[in-house]
């Protein structure tokens, strides 16, 4: 059994689909933070068979959990303070995501306009469909689908 030490303040993202931890690592921009991050791949899970876990030691207001909700809203987010779980955050599909994914429509204004954010809007919560705010192109990526 692999042991990773407890964290003082931060997050434990549990029940990440096996193999997705690095995607979340990049999209949360954890590489840009000067904090301790543990990436646990392919941990045993009674519910999922295999799962990934991310442990991040950082102030709890520093991460944008909308990104995690977009990638997979079934991930469990445990918020840690003073080495104890103080809350379990229920993730929802964010209504809007900014600068996480890019519009792939070559005819979209986002392909040429300088300084313009890449904004996607949740247009169908049931089918989990996101569309570019500007050209309404559907997002066909593999983050959460």
């Amino acid at each position: 059994m692999l042991n990773v030490g407890a964290i003082e303040e931060g997050f434990v993202l549990d029940h990440i689909k096996a193999g997705k931890a690095m995607t979340i690592y990049k999209d949360l921009k954890l590489d840009q933070l000067d904090c301790t991050v543990a990436i646990i791949k392919n941990a045993k899970s009674s519910k999922m068979g295999k799962k990934d876990i991310l442990k991040v030691e950082c102030p709890i207001d520093q991460l944008n959990m909308d990104v995690v909700g977009f990638i997979d809203h079934n991930i469990t987010v445990n918020i840690i303070k003073n080495s104890r779980i103080i809350a379990k955050k229920k993730l929802e599909l964010p209504k809007e995501i900014r600068n996480v994914i890019r519009c792939r429509n070559p005819r979209c204004i986002t392909s040429i306009e300088q300084g313009l954010d890449q904004v996607f809007v949740l247009t169908d919560p049931e089918k989990e469909i996101y569309r570019c705010k500007y050209c309404e192109e559907k997002y066909h990526g593999t983050h959460n689908k």
Binding site: C108, I109, S111, C132, Y134, E137
Partner: peptide
């Protein structure tokens, strides 16, 4: 010619913007 350009304009415009065709 680019889709969504009038919306980019509308986001910062001080006057009404009418989309007269975007791609």
């Amino acid at each position: 010619p680019k889709e969504g350009a009038p919306m980019v304009a509308a986001e910062v415009s001080p006057i009404p913007v009418i989309n007269a065709g975007d791609g």
